[in-house]
Write a protein that binds this DNA or RNA. Structure first.
Lengths: 249, 249
DNA sequence: CTTGACCCTGACGCGGCGTCAGGCTGTGCA
DNA sequence: TGCACAGCCTGACGCCGCGTCAGGGTCAAG
């Protein structure tokens, strides 16, 4: 097939196909003697993948690695997951608009916080892409999404308060000179693990240890802990890993 | 509020707010003596509108005219409509992926046309914006709203009874093996078109054809028809489009 | 009075194409 | 057989919506 036909079929412009060729995202498998691009069925398959991932907000470069790195079944699973995430998010936005309509009908008006709730802390366009990269396929992630979807505002207040409280007690222990690989520190870590299990997802020691490592590797987490007390990220990380080792034994 | 606070609340970057100020999309209503941007609650309202329309794929320039040109109630209605369109589109994509999964599981593979169906002829990113342009403030929609607003309970009883009756006759035709692109089927379709014209809004063949397409694309409509008789949605859709072609000739 | 977080205004860059320009190719029909 | 006209090619420039420095003021806490 020639570019024009492919473009018409897929609902993109010729220029787009040129672009994908140029950047090596999708190069037609052949050329006619006169230099016309010739697309094979396999090329169409690939184009289809590209378009799905593109619509989901992935930058083209990343689309390339995604496509290169996994088999068809994996694509379908991933796309399914991402699409359902988007579905949920859109549902939430619809609900938000309906809530506001109702509020207006009753003459009350929502606070800015309530209105931005749906946007808060997410980059909406790149949202799916970023989450996907970090957490991908884990069951824990799916579970967390399922559970948190049902949480009310009060649930969130309670949960964040509990988290805050535990973090403060950890900071106190750190300042008191408690070593992170001793029993009291490990107890706090264990409490942390159980909190996660209650509020978000099943968190066996092994997973918890991985989380602990992340606390020092991912600067966003590091920043959160360091903001409470200097050295806390490292302290918590060590305590969590020590506790995981203890639990497994 | 200062930029940083607004940015954090709304989940955007400070740079974005600078940008919106520069292009006049959202200029803070005041400045401190030292030149700091000061955002008022009204500014937050506006920002919220901007973000919703942006997420729906409108270019910023158009967002400005949209916001300028309509009152809050209208925004809510429009956003609601656009979001539900997106919801449906996402549902369709989920369904498409599921269809492909099933096909794979059964060892068959879909044709390129089937796979691109969902993309066909739409620029996915700008989809909502496009729909809005096409259908959004159409006369048909406005007319329907005006007319139905005046209907009494008895009007509704009559109208739904008429609709029911026609649907049943269509189902009968379907079960009798009448092909949807033959004259009897087209006559029923034409009756349908005239019913719409009487009860809701002027419905020239072209618009009716678009409606027909929707009967198979929009699962809410599909479900309504399929509940009466399996295959009816597709049958009606085809009949309506065939009739439209006949009328135009 | 300093320090560190926060704010300002340029200015440049980038991703993902849209949109010419200038020229070759392929084909229906006169 | 020639030509008109659609379709393809390769540059090259432009635009939108910001991200990301750079260079420099501001404000609150200690």
């Amino acid at each position: 097939m020639n570019v024009g036909e492919v473009a018409a079929l897929a609902g993109v412009t010729v220029r787009t196909l040129h672009h994908y060729d140029r950047i090596g995202l999708l190069s037609p498998s052949g050329r006619s003697t006169s230099g016309y691009r010739q697309y094979s069925p396999a090329d169409l398959d690939r184009l289809h993948q590209v378009l799905v991932y593109r619509e989901l907000g992935f930058p083209l470069e990343e689309v390339a690695t995604l496509i290169e790195a996994s088999d068809p079944a994996e694509h379908l699973r991933r796309q399914h997951r991402l699409l359902r995430d988007r579905l949920e998010r859109t549902r939430a936005m619809v609900a938000a608009v309906e809530k506001e309509m109702e509020a207006r009908a009753m003459g009350i008006s929502l606070s800015p916080e309530e209105r931005f709730e749906i946007f808060g802390e997410h980059d909406p366009e790149r949202y799916e892409a970023e989450v996907e990269e970090r957490w991908g396929d884990t069951e824990a992630y799916a579970q967390s999404r399922r559970r948190t979807a049902a949480y009310t505002k009060e649930d969130w207040v309670r949960i964040t308060a509990e988290g805050e409280d535990l973090m403060q007690r950890m900071a106190t222990a750190l300042r008191a000179g408690v070593a992170p690989d001793t029993a009291p520190a490990m107890d706090l870590a264990e409490e942390h693990r159980q909190q996660i299990g209650r509020d978000f997802y099943d968190c066996p020691p092994e997973l918890h240890a991985a989380l602990g490592r992340m606390y020092v590797e991912d600067e966003r987490f590091t920043a959160t802990y360091e903001a409470v007390a200097p050295g806390l990220a490292q302290w918590v990380s060590t305590a969590v890993q020590a506790n995981a080792a203890r639990q497994e034994a």
